[in-house]
Simulated assay, not measured.
Amino acid sequence: MSTSASEKSSILIVDDMEENLVALEAVLGSLDQQVVRAHSGEEALKAMLRQEFAVVLLDVLMPGMDGFETAANIKRLDQTKDVPIILLTGTDADTDYAYRGYAVGAADFLTKPFDPWLLRTKVNVFLELHRKNRQLAAQAEQLRRLLVGDGTSEETTEGAEAEGAQEGEKAGASEAGSADRLTEIVNRLAQIELLLRDEEGEASTGLADRISEMEHAVDTLRINEE
């Protein structure tokens, strides 16, 4: 099943040789994501400032700004510092290339010629992480809207349309709307917690535990409202 345009993530491939870019596009084609080309480090940085990328595949040996310098510049910018970078290099690479790559913030390192299946697998890990992060950000934004009252629920809309209702009926509708809003907040917190539980690492687990505590506290408040 193909991915809709709104659900697709973007992958940036950077190499000064056109045939290498063509080969990378062919390998990544089955992932059904948007693949953007850059022929130099400078072009890559401009592309990353224009749009969001899930992962960057970056050739090490390029004229001018090489892969190490490009990676270092990517990590210096607040807008791009969290984008994972996979460095690519030839078989004649120096033995310290991997060390230098990780030192500038690369997430992974592959030597050409690489196994297409292995490359797709590594890229897919970062695509999945990017999808989860987007879901988490969307849930957090929806929760923020609920907490500050920016969201417009059906109950709120109906209450606005019933402007001429009696005061007692308005109070009842307000209480029902408050309980419904608390229920939706609990549901959003539960969804955020599940996304965090799927992530590895102590930080995600600790944050998920705190979200769980908030979930129980809001649920208790919802029950009292009812």
Rank of each mutant, 00 (worst) to 15 (best):
D108C: 03
A107I: 01
L119E: 07
G105L: 11
R188A: 06
S178L: 13
A5F: 03
K122Q: 11
N124D: 13
L110S: 08
E25S: 06
L136H: 10
A165Q: 09
R144N: 12
V123T: 13
I223R: 14
M65F: 07
A208F: 04
D209A: 10
G101M: 08
D108S: 11
Q33R: 09
E154I: 00
R100H: 10
A71F: 05
S2Y: 05
G168L: 10
T121M: 09
D82N: 03
K75P: 11
A171K: 02
D94F: 05
Q79F: 05
K81G: 01
R120N: 08
Q139V: 10
T183N: 12
V60K: 03
A47Q: 13
E213V: 06
L58S: 08
P113G: 03
L110H: 08
E169S: 07
K81C: 12
D180Q: 10
A160M: 01
D209Q: 12
A54G: 08
N73W: 02
H130Y: 06
A208Q: 04
L110V: 13
S2D: 02
A137K: 14
R134V: 06
Q191C: 06
R76L: 14
D92N: 14
N20I: 13
N20T: 14
P63Y: 12
D198I: 01
D108G: 04
A208M: 05
S212A: 15
E200C: 02
Q139D: 10
I185L: 08
A44R: 09
E163Q: 07
S204L: 00
G67W: 01
S204G: 02
E42Y: 06
L28F: 14
L118V: 14
G64L: 09
E163H: 09
M62I: 07
T183H: 08
G206Y: 01
D94N: 13
I86D: 07
S204C: 05
R131V: 03
L146N: 11
D198T: 03
K170C: 01
R134E: 15
T91Q: 09
L221G: 10
T156R: 05
K81S: 10
N73I: 00
A217G: 07
E167G: 03
A190D: 08
A5G: 05
V218F: 12
E43L: 04
H39L: 08
A160Q: 02
L195H: 06
N20Q: 11
M214V: 09
Q191T: 13
T89Q: 06
E215H: 09
A5M: 07
L147P: 02
I223S: 11
T220I: 10
M17I: 15
T3I: 15
G206S: 12
I192A: 14
M214W: 06
E215D: 04
K46H: 13
E175N: 03
E69H: 07
K81I: 01
V35S: 07
V83K: 02
Q166F: 09
G206V: 12
D198E: 13
D150Y: 00
K122C: 02
K170W: 01
Q34S: 12
Y102H: 11
G29A: 14
R144A: 04
M214R: 04
L58K: 04
E42D: 14
E167A: 09
E52T: 13
E19G: 03
P84T: 02
